[in-house]
Design a protein around this nucleic acid. Structure first.
Lengths: 205, 205
DNA sequence: TGTACATCAGTGAACGCGCGTTCACTGATGTAC
DNA sequence: TGTACATCAGTGAACGCGCGTTCACTGATGTAC
């Protein structure tokens, strides 16, 4: 796909992919503009033809990550079909699937310390992904009697927190206790118990 | 407390405190040995009288963090008094309280990318803190009929994930959506719903 | 109490390194005639 | 089809910087006599 010779052909995307790989391997802070250039077979200066600098390259990784993330979430939600509950559960699984399949993107998005406010397009991409989960939560809480219906934003925040926590603590080798359970099971059961607590799932299932 | 003049008096602890402050302000990766030395009013070379190097300084921050964390958790758990449930809830609150009160420590522990395996004392400190939560989970699951009793390790992992997720996503200003709920409320309600899902809390409360 | 000396915490200069970024340039490409 | 030229993606050398780390040193402290 990349042309040989003096002109690269699609250096911009090649740099992004190189950056993602490096971020995945060494973390978003260990990532180096010079290394990314080298990986793409190019001089560090060439990067500046396509990006404003190091931060811009990371931001673009995050931006693409949020786009993919949003797509996956949307696809998993599938407009609430077949049922609000099933769609919601699929969304939760999509969260973890994304983190596992696109670790570089995930790290660029959540661990690079990038400032959302600095880049409106980045903020918008992040918002979109969040909105899907929020909508899934809203649909689902409709099934509850108004009296015991939690705010959808809080519901969504709980699920985000649990999902993110599972990714950070049990998906990588890094921190202390690697649990004896696969992260997928951990998240599935965790969300299941939580939904039961809300009365959205029968007590015995 | 620190002596004036050529000899510092307690440079070791002063360096740790300077490092913690810098980590809190700039993240564990932005942290610089030279800056920590400067903060403590000392030449970078002086650090090497007390630490093997930069990584060792961070590791010590994490080690002290796990010690404090363990103490707080143990104190909150209070041997399961007055009830297993109350003690468990207090432990969850202690998690978040620690993260808020000791952000530098928390970051050194969970975000510095330090390798637990490299330092056995660090691994032991981390294990101790984890063991307290595990014990709290074990005590509490005893109240459930054996048939619907989840493995305590899984229970503990769920709580860890939710707690860590709340800290990472809603305690700092960094990532996209800052929720409209205080992190303390978020965690309290989240754990509450989860416990209800397990049947450990009555459905109406 | 006073002096000599061992200890060792901190100095200051220096190092090699790799980073992000800049700049004038050069070579490949594609278009106009 | 062939030539002249504009465009611009990538080069390569250089920069200033701040980092972690080293080393021979020096000055303060406390102890032995």
């Amino acid at each position: 796909m990349a042309k040989q010779g003096y002109h690269h052909g699609n250096l911009r995307q090649a740099l992004i992919e190189a950056a993602l790989k490096l971020i995945e391997e060494q973390g978003p802070q260990g990532f180096t503009l010079s290394d990314a250039a080298k990986s793409a077979g190019v001089t560090p200066a060439a990067v500046y033809r396509h990006f404003a600098g190091r931060d811009d390259l990371i931001a673009e990784c995050a931006r693409q990550g949020f786009a993919i993330f949003g797509d996956l979430m949307e696809h998993a939600y599938n407009d609430g079909k077949p049922t609000a509950l099933r769609a919601f559960e699929a969304t939760g699984r999509a969260y973890l699937a994304f983190a596992r399949k696109f670790p570089g993107h995930y790290m660029a998005m959540f661990e690079s310390g990038i400032s959302m406010n600095a880049d409106p397009t980045l903020a918008r991409a992040a918002e979109r992904a969040g909105a899907i989960l929020l909508r899934a939560a809203e649909e689902l809480t409709r099934q509850l009697p108004p009296g015991r219906r939690p705010p959808a934003a809080m519901f969504a925040a709980h699920i985000s927190a649990m999902s993110h926590g599972v990714v950070e603590l049990y998906t990588r080798g890094t921190p202390g206790a690697r649990s004896p359970f696969p992260p997928e099971d951990l998240l599935e059961t965790g969300i299941g118990i939580y939904l039961r607590g809300l009365g959205l799932v029968p007590p015995d299932s």
